[in-house]
Amino acid sequence: MTADHYTYRVHFSAADGEYVATVAEFASLSWLDSSPAGALLGLMQVVTDVVEDLRTSGEPVPAPLADREYSGKFMVRIPPEAHRRLAIEAAEQHVSLNRLIADRLAVA
């Protein structure tokens, strides 16, 4: 597993006047730079160092989201009225409730 498998985002921060890179698997890490590429490369080096330190100390290393396996199933609790409203909408569209929700999530 290398640092390039993690989930990075780079955006411009008006407050900082620079680009900020973040990594989903390490919420406390970020890197600022005047260029998007510099922010990304800086953070990737930090992640490489942190992963190495975690391994050296015997601590768990977060698995990259890209390398995890997903079942495609998860449970969501919603208020009964919302459940009823969605079930009615699914019936009116002649699709299953699962299909209706999956389609909604896919475009969200």
Rank of each mutant, 00 (worst) to 15 (best):
M1T: 08
M1G: 07
M1W: 00
T2D: 05
T2V: 04
T2L: 13
D4M: 10
H5G: 08
H5D: 03
Y6Q: 05
T7R: 13
T7A: 12
T7V: 10
Y8P: 10
Y8H: 05
Y8R: 07
Y8L: 03
R9V: 03
V10A: 06
H11W: 04
H11I: 01
F12L: 04
F12V: 00
A14S: 03
A14K: 14
A15M: 03
G17I: 08
E18C: 15
E18Q: 15
Y19M: 04
V20R: 14
V20L: 11
V20H: 09
A21Q: 08
T22L: 06
V23F: 10
A24K: 11
A24F: 07
E25G: 06
E25Y: 07
E25C: 11
E25I: 01
E25D: 02
F26S: 00
S28Y: 06
S28R: 13
S28V: 10
S28G: 14
L29W: 12
L29I: 01
L29S: 03
S30P: 13
S30V: 01
S30T: 10
W31Q: 05
W31A: 12
L32V: 02
L32G: 08
L32Y: 06
D33T: 09
S34I: 14
S34T: 13
S34C: 14
S35I: 03
S35C: 10
S35P: 12
P36G: 12
A37L: 04
A37E: 00
A37H: 13
A39T: 05
A39C: 07
L40E: 05
L40N: 04
L41D: 00
L41Q: 11
L41K: 13
G42R: 12
M44E: 02
Q45A: 12
Q45K: 14
Q45P: 09
Q45T: 15
V46S: 09
V46W: 04
T48P: 07
D49K: 15
D49Y: 10
E52V: 06
E52H: 15
D53W: 13
D53N: 12
L54F: 14
T56M: 13
G58N: 06
G58E: 00
E59A: 15
E59V: 12
P60T: 03
V61Q: 04
V61G: 06
V61M: 01
V61D: 04
P64A: 05
L65H: 15
A66Y: 04
A66T: 01
A66M: 10
A66E: 01
R68L: 05
R68V: 07
R68G: 02
Y70P: 08
K73L: 10
F74K: 07
F74G: 03
F74E: 02
M75R: 11
V76H: 11
I78D: 02
I78Q: 00
I78K: 13
P80A: 14
P80H: 07
E81Y: 10
A82N: 12
A82E: 08
H83F: 03
R84Q: 13
R84S: 15
R85F: 07
R85N: 09
L86K: 12
L86M: 06
L86R: 05
A87I: 05
A87Y: 09
E89K: 13
E89F: 13
E89Q: 11
E89A: 14
A90E: 00
Q93N: 08
H94K: 14
N98Q: 03
N98R: 11
L100Y: 09
L100S: 03
A102H: 08
D103I: 02
R104S: 07
R104C: 00
R104F: 05
L105R: 01
L105S: 03
L105V: 03
A106G: 08
A106K: 11
A108S: 13
A108K: 15
